[in-house]
């Protein structure tokens, strides 16, 4: 059994990473809840954003936390256009076709990245990369703290948008009752596109935060799509709070597994957690219908 400070360190760093995971999963959750479409390209979009951050750092010496703002806007617009101009055409197609379409998109992005950047791992080396905050016996990585702060800000903005703006309320209405949305004459095609844009923007912000925590390779996508999926299920489908809690649960359990068992047991533990949860609380932490 490692000494308590190590455990505390793992819990803190797991919590901070978990907040970023939560933001990433939030994008998937929103797209699924509103458009009823599993974004199988979610991890690939994050990877794309990570390469964007690496490129901006190497080419323009831009700090990833600044790139983040531009990335949110670019991915937001890209997501809107993708849904509005392309994916909306498939809304009424059978489920399996839509699924295949998203998988195709994921593979195209993943392969495109491999083609463009090669298989080698890339990373960003900021001047504060290895610095940490010391709190007594605790050492907390600065980048992890900044990443978590950025994720919290992005999440708060997203929550405010859904709570306070008319468009945000209308998007919640679509998720709540898709038939009702059409009865009320809501601009459904536009609202779906806004939702996909917001989902893509969140995962772009998460990517720009993640690039400081892990190296990026072209094959990162599928693992993170799956992780986002696990988080959403653990948290409870359709619940924003749930996605955040799910992110925290997975972040902390991964960190503890890395410390108490071995780093390669990370996935085993988070998927084990999923299986247990599916058994004891199938609706996830925050249950269905709540958001």
């Amino acid at each position: 059994m490692p000494a308590l400070p190590y455990v505390a360190n793992a819990v803190i760093s797991g919590t901070l990473t978990g907040i970023v995971y939560g933001l990433m999963a939030l994008g998937l959750s929103a797209i699924f809840g509103v458009v009823r479409q599993v974004n199988f390209a979610h991890g690939e979009l994050m990877t794309l954003a990570m390469y964007g951050a690496v490129g901006a750092f190497q080419g323009l010496a831009l700090d990833p936390f600044l790139t983040m703002i531009a990335a949110a806007m670019v991915f937001g617009v890209f997501g809107y256009v993708l849904q509005r101009g392309f994916l909306n055409r498939f809304i009424h197609r059978p489920e399996h076709l839509r699924m295949l379409l998203m998988i195709a998109l994921a593979i195209i992005i993943g392969n495109g990245l491999l083609l463009a950047f090669g298989p080698d791992a890339r990373s960003v080396q900021t001047s504060y990369q290895l610095d940490s905050f010391e709190l007594g016996p605790l050492l907390v990585d600065k980048v992890r703290v900044y990443a978590a702060i950025a994720a919290v800000v992005a999440t708060a903005l997203l929550a405010a948008f859904f709570r306070l703006t008319l468009t945000g309320k209308a998007i919640r209405a679509c998720a709540d009752n898709p038939i009702g949305a059409r009865v009320a004459g809501l601009p459904v095609a536009h609202l779906y596109a806004v939702t996909f844009g917001l989902g893509a923007a969140s995962v772009a912000v998460a990517g720009c935060a993640m690039v400081q925590l892990i190296d990026v390779t072209p094959g990162l996508g599928p693992g993170y799509t799956l992780l986002a999926f696990v988080i959403v299920i653990v948290g409870g489908l359709g619940s924003m709070v749930g996605a955040l809690l799910g992110g925290l649960a997975i972040g902390v359990s991964e960190a503890l597994a890395g410390l108490l068992i071995t780093p390669s047991a990370k996935s085993m533990v988070s998927f084990g957690l999923l299986v247990v949860l599916l058994l004891v609380r199938p609706q996830g932490l925050m249950g269905p219908g709540r958001r």
Partner: peptide, 18 residues
Amino acid sequence: QVFPSLTVEDNLEVGALL
């Protein structure tokens, strides 16, 4: 076909999104 998890006020507001 109301929006069950939205408040009455939000249901009404959304109806004016034209």
